[in-house]
Structure formats: C-alpha cells, structure tokens
Nucleic acid binder design. Structure first.
Length: 385
DNA sequence: CCTCCACAGGAAGCGCAGGAGT
DNA sequence: ACTCCTGCGCTTCCTGTGGAGG
C-alpha cells in the first residue's frame, strides 16, 4: 500500500537527524578533539600569517576522527585570511603527483579542463599562484595511496624554496603507521615535525612497553638524540627497542640513560648498514674510497688549516677510479661523482664543507659520518673486494 | 694585478625503459 | 601492436669562483 510523503514525514522515527550519522557529517563540537584541533591550528597559523609553511602528518586507525578533525579545522579557517586556500584531496582518487597538481590548479587555470599539459607547466602555474602571496594548505587524505609520494613531496618542498612570497603546507592523513617507512629519507625529514615525533614516541611506548619501565629522562634523551640526529621517528623507535633489549639482557628492570646511550652506538651502525646495503653500486664504491683514504691517511693530511679527517674531493675521485678499474667497471664521470657525494651527504653518511683559506682553488672537503672501520667493513662485504 | 688551480654546478643532449594514447 | 612522450641516469661541454702564487 502506498504511503504519502506527509505520512512519512509525520511519523515519529527513531532518528532525529540521519545526516548526523553519515560519515561525512562534521559535528559542531568535537568532543575530546579540541586539543588536537588546537595543535593543528598552531601548526597552520604561521602559514596564514604569511610565514614559512609547515607540514604535518596525522595518523591513526580508521574511525578515530582524523578526517573529521581536519574538516572541522578547514571550516574554521575558511575565509579568515585573504590569499589563502585549502584543498582537500582524497588520495584514493587523486593518487599521483600529476592528478593532485591538476586538481589543485583547476580553479585557477581554466585551460586545465583539457588534459595534455606536462608537469613543468603545472609546476610553473603553481609557482605563479604562490608568488602572488598566496598561502595554500593541501590536505592529502589517505596519503599512503599516492604512487609517487616522494616526488610529490620533493616537488612541493622545493616549490616552497623557490617562491618569494607565498607557500604551501602539506597535511597528510594516513591510517597506517608503517607507511612512513616507504618514504625517501629526504621526504621524511621534510615532512616530520618534532611534535609529531614525540606523539609517536609516547603512543608507541604505551603500546610496546610495560608500564613505567622506561625512565622519563631516558625518553627525553631519546627525543633529544633523535632531534639532533635527523628527527626521524624510525631512529627513535629503534633506539628505544635496542635500549630495552640491552637492559633486559643485563637483567635490569628499568631502561635508563646509559642503556639509551649504549644503544645509540649500536643502532647507528645497524642503520648505516641498512642504508649502505640499499645503495646503488657506484655510491658504495665512492663511500668505500672515502673510508679507505680516511684510514690510510689523506695526501693533504699534513696541510695546515685543515681539520683532521677531512679529505679532498679530487683525491677521492682518483681512488674511486682506481677501485673501478680493480672491479672491472667503467667509472662514472666526475660530474656525476659529485652527485653521488650529494646523495651520500643527504643520507648522512658523509659531511662536506667548502674549502676556504689554506687550500688552493675551490674544492669540497669531505668527512666520513661514521667510524671509517665500520664503513669499510660493511661495504667490503657488499662489494666483494 | 694577473694567472693558474681545482674544482662547482648549470645546460644540453643521448640512449634507454616504461607508460599512455590510438 | 604501434608510436609518442616522459623520466632517468649519465656524459660532455662550459662558465664561474675564491684563494694561492708569482
């Protein structure tokens, strides 16, 4: 039997307002989320004042209100500042650098209705917009779905360096804590903030350790060491786990500063080993050359004004060429060798500094970032020298 | 002051692989 | 299946630069 609309509307139902229960609904007040909202606001506010933008990643299991929180924040910010815009993207749909840029730019660039524009074009357009003192906040929901995330992060952080006025902030949302492991170290360090690091630590400690077994000062030390090192959460967690293991092996009940300190040395070597083993061959050869000369002594070691342990770019390249000959490989050009040095520095395996007084000409001085014996050992095994 | 040194790092271009479009 | 395009890893060429040395 047919029921009229009036009858349906008049009938008292169980629901007061069905839309409230829809997953897309954003309630006016989010209980227990005020703290989080404040944090996000504090991270975004410099961006709105036209200062250097910051990035942030929210993570947590589905249904914990990440998307909801961020939508609330968007509502509050919308229209507060001129020359400012927020873009919410679900990366399940916009899952590549190209698609995301295209989606963001569409409202500004009418020609984009047609496809067929290259990435450089999109890049230029974005740069153009940001340069008009425009602040952009890009929210990437389900960020782990993006195929070329490293490139995207690199592009966006790089564009921030190039703009004169505005800038772009990235807010990533992810369900998986593990997704960060898939990130390039460079992207990682530009994405993570210290506050996030602390949050990760506390959350993980609660989940992974018995109550109160880690002394407060040990946690502080871990955070301090990590911040000083790279700010990489992966490092902090490894440190804690190792410290826990070492304390356990000694039959201790609590994890103290000394355990963390002892763990640091071990973790450093492990992490180096991990990094090195995933390095392309030529990078490894260059690194080996650096370790070798460090151990045998630099040709210029006795030069005044040069700090001990620093090597000359030129002598390393010569050593590298010799090693290649020994391995029956064709050495790469000097130009590309310099890029290798950049990569190695980026990974924290070496440190470089430009030469100054006391050195003829203009060159780069290179120092190995870990114990040379360790590095030589690790690479030797890998390369089979 | 000029010149040389010992590089730095940008620009152009090349061969190749993988993906998109048709 | 075919072409076309793009990115990648790399080479070659070239100009720039700050200090040493005469």
């Amino acid at each position: 039997m047919a029921t009229s609309f009036e009858e349906v509307l008049a009938k008292a139902t169980i629901f007061r307002d069905v839309t409230v229960l829809s997953p897309h609904f954003v309630p006016k007040i989010l209980p227990f989320r005020d703290l989080q909202i404040n944090e996000i606001v504090s991270i975004l506010s410099p961006a709105l004042k036209g200062q250097k933008p910051r990035n942030l990643i929210l993570y947590g299991k589905t249904g914990t209100g990440k998307t909801c929180t961020i939508k609330k924040v968007m509502e509050e910010f919308q229209g507060i500042a001129k020359n400012q815009s927020m873009h919410y993207l679900n990366c399940r749909i916009y899952n590549s650098r190209y698609r995301i840029l295209q989606k963001i730019l569409r409202p500004y660039v009418p020609e984009l209705e047609k496809t067929g524009f290259g990435l450089p074009f999109l890049y230029e357009k974005l740069l153009e917009i940001l340069n008009k003192e425009h602040q952009m906040v890009i929210i990437l929901d389900e960020i782990d779905m993006i195929k070329d995330l490293d490139e995207l992060v690199y592009t966006l952080t790089r564009i921030n360096d190039e703009t004169t006025a505005g800038g772009a902030s990235i807010i990533g949302i992810s369900n998986k804590l593990s997704f960060k492991d898939a990130l390039d170290p460079r992207s990682k360090s530009s994405l993570y903030e210290t506050e996030q690091l602390q949050q990760i630590l506390f959350q993980r400690i609660e989940e992974g350790f018995e109550k109160d077994v880690i002394e407060k000062s040990a946690i502080n030390l871990t955070a301090a060491l990590t911040a000083q090192e790279s700010g990489d959460a992966r490092y902090a967690l490894k440190l804690l786990v190792k410290a826990g293991e070492m304390a356990e092996a000694k039959g201790k009940v609590k994890v103290t500063d000394e355990d963390v300190e002892a763990a640091r040395r071990k973790v450093e070597k492990d992490l180096a080993a991990e990094t090195i083993s995933s390095l392309p061959e030529n990078h490894q050869i260059v690194l080996f050359a650096i370790a070798k000369i460090t151990l045998s002594g630099s040709r210029y070691a006795r030069l005044d004004n040069i700090d001990e342990g620093f090597l000359f770019s030129g002598e390393i390249y010569e050593e590298y060429e010799m090693l290649c000959k020994k391995l029956r490989k064709k050495p790469r050009s000097a130009r590309w060798y310099k890029e290798y040095l950049n990569d190695l520095e980026m990974l924290g395996l070496i440190t470089t500094t430009p030469s100054s007084k006391g050195v003829r000409g203009h060159t780069t001085l290179i120092k190995i970032g870990h114990k040379a014996e360790d590095i030589e050992d690790l690479v030797k095994g890998k390369l089979g020298i």
